[in-house]
């Protein structure tokens, strides 16, 4: 009986998929943060949130632009952002979680930023210079996002009884989604093997150390629930993403022949 040929994912497909994963997370979280514009607790915070959203959407534009170029199918960043259905999106589930209150927004940002910073540090030394270049630019932006979200998590965690309770509830709500970023699949393994992207599991110790230190200073308790929720990177999302896309993609879908 002849041996089955070993299935390998073509290099371009690995790169394309890797770019979608990082780009979609930036896009979807940027979109979520942009929903705050005009509604934040203070003007200063409104302006700061818009800066974070602008950075993330800008990064998504670069990642998806490169993805489209690698794919070579005549699509561009906008086609990827506005013409894929939810099943085609590769973002982390954490990124798509609805804003709910400011506590969930801030906690989501912090848990994400702490991963994002580690991830970009790995991508900045990618063997693919195009990836490394985008990551280096994004790294500076995200270092600031992390500094800011840490300040807010600590300030609100160790603030009033109400702010503490809200932050603790937000942490408990989001905690199950924090395992996904570190759980790799065959694509991640191939990307790590090729030196395109870091091995997801290797990012976890740095993330944990940072998160635990900040949460301790914020007087928040680590939930003991399992960090089991995943699926985002294989296109299996929560209901909220479909609604987000229905809003985000409305014009491109309703007027497919139009240029904007």
């Amino acid at each position: 009986m002849p041996a089955l040929p070993e299935t390998t994912i073509p290099a371009d497909a690995v790169l394309f998929e890797t770019l979608l994963r990082v780009g979609d997370s930036a896009l979807i979280l940027g979109h979520r943060v942009s929903e705050w514009c005009g509604h934040a607790p203070t003007l200063e915070e409104d302006i700061a949130l818009a800066n974070v959203a602008l950075d993330l959407i800008g990064q998504a534009t670069l990642w998806l632009g490169l993805a489209a170029e690698i794919e070579g199918a005549g699509r561009d960043a906008d086609a990827l952002a506005f013409r894929r259905d939810a099943g085609g999106f590769r973002n982390l589930l954490l990124a798509e979680q609805p804003n709910r209150d400011f506590a969930v927004t801030v906690m989501r940002q912090f848990l994400f930023d702490a991963w994002h910073a580690e991830m970009l540090a790995g991508l900045a030394v990618s063997t693919d210079p195009r990836v490394a270049e985008i990551a280096a630019k994004a790294q500076k932006e995200v270092a600031y996002h992390l500094e800011r979200s840490e300040t807010l998590v600590i300030g609100l965690g160790d603030g009033t009884p109400e702010s503490h309770a809200r932050m603790q509830a937000a942490l408990t709500r989001l905690w199950p989604f924090t395992g996904e970023p570190f759980r790799g699949d065959a694509t991640d393994a191939a990307a790590a093997e090729a030196g395109i992207a870091p091995d997801p599991a290797a990012l976890e110790p740095g993330w944990s150390a940072r998160v635990e230190a900040v949460l301790a200073e914020a007087t928040l308790t680590l939930p003991d629930t399992a960090r089991f929720r995943s699926g985002g990177r294989s296109g299996v999302h929560g209901e909220a993403l479909g609604l987000l896309l229905a809003e985000m993609q409305f014009l491109q879908r309703a007027y497919p022949d139009a240029r904007w």
Partner: peptide
């Protein structure tokens, strides 16, 4: 309309503009 802006660039421009209003 920020969440419904039709392209990534239009979304960024509008967001930056509305952010300016807050400023």
């Amino acid at each position: 309309w920020i969440t419904r802006a039709p392209t990534l660039e239009r979304k960024q421009i509008l967001l930056a503009k509305v952010q300016d209003e807050a400023g």
